[in-house]
Design a binder for these strands. Structure first.
Length: 254
DNA sequence: AAACCATTCAACCGCCGAACG
DNA sequence: ACGTTCGGCGGTTGAATGGTT
């Protein structure tokens, strides 16, 4: 085991002096990198091996690039951090002349803060949208093999039953507007346009682009908003529900 | 001019895996 | 198989510096 991070009694710590730097540099130029445990004695330094190694790698090594990070470098750091996580040595390996410590420091002092504030903004914006979305009716995709949607009579019957029994309405909620079922959607939905050319209009119609018209039937095989193809025999309530979720997710991008 | 606060970055700390005896 | 040493890494710290009041 290490002796408490290689610190025998009397070993110097803290900032390096110019004299120490030149001793270390001369030693490594003479003996080469590596064998760090031998460096302090060879160089005549009262420093631990780790301290010597760190000083060399982060400061004394030739071709170390100093100064501000360029836009390209910053861009690369962000991309690589996203890809690799906090693998600073790997990230620094892709940035000639930059050390892992430099990259890490730059990330901690600059980029992390920016990303956090950016995320907070996005989060706040999302919450704002959520509040709006919550009060909207949900557009739906209907399958003809859903028994309750086989015909409008069944729907009306379902509503009557539900109203009488005061039961919670089954998913997904609420039912789409119907032209003659007596339910007034006009108060709720007024030309609220959604993606893919699907429009809920005041008279209760879905003006469709690639989803079947609301007339109590759905044409066999329906494309969803996210490009999936639902076979007429595969669709069920959960499909409908989750497809709707996807559909409404798209609204978040507007 | 002085006190205070915020930021930067060099250096330290503790841990891990590989190599070795 | 086990213990020790070594190199390496990421997280953290704190002195130095700059900016603000």
């Amino acid at each position: 085991m290490d002796i408490v991070c290689c610190v025998p009694l009397g070993v110097r710590k803290g900032a390096w002096t110019g004299e120490e730097d030149s001793l270390l540099k001369n030693c490594i130029e003479q003996y080469g990198e590596g064998m760090w445990h031998q460096i302090p004695s060879r160089a005549g330094l009262n420093r631990c091996r780790k301290s010597c190694r760190l000083r060399w790698l982060n400061y004394l090594r030739p071709n170390i690039k100093r100064g501000n990070f360029t836009m390209d470098e910053v861009d690369l750091i962000i991309k690589l951090q996203k890809l690799l996580g906090n693998r600073w040595s790997l990230i620094a390996g892709r940035l000639p002349g930059r050390t892992a410590n430099d990259v890490k420091n730059y990330w901690n002092t600059n980029l992390q803060k920016k990303l956090i504030t950016q995320r907070e903004k996005v989060k706040a914006k999302t919450q704002e949208k959520m509040e709006t979305i919550i009060i909207r009716p949900r557009p739906r995709i209907f399958s003809k093999n859903q028994p309750r949607l086989m015909d409008k009579t069944a729907i009306i019957e379902n509503i009557r039953t539900r109203d009488n029994l005061s039961e919670p309405f089954p998913l997904p909620l609420p039912l789409p507007p119907s032209r003659d079922d007596g339910i007034s959607w006009d108060n709720i939905v007024v030309n609220s346009k959604i993606n893919n050319g699907i429009t809920w209009s005041a008279n209760g119609l879905i003006e469709e682009a690639n989803i079947g018209n609301w007339d109590g039937k759905i044409r066999p095989g329906t494309h969803t908003s996210c490009g999936n193809f639902i076979d007429e025999d595969q669709s069920d309530w959960s499909d409908i529900f989750f497809n709707n979720v996807n559909l409404w997710d798209l609204l978040g991008d507007e």
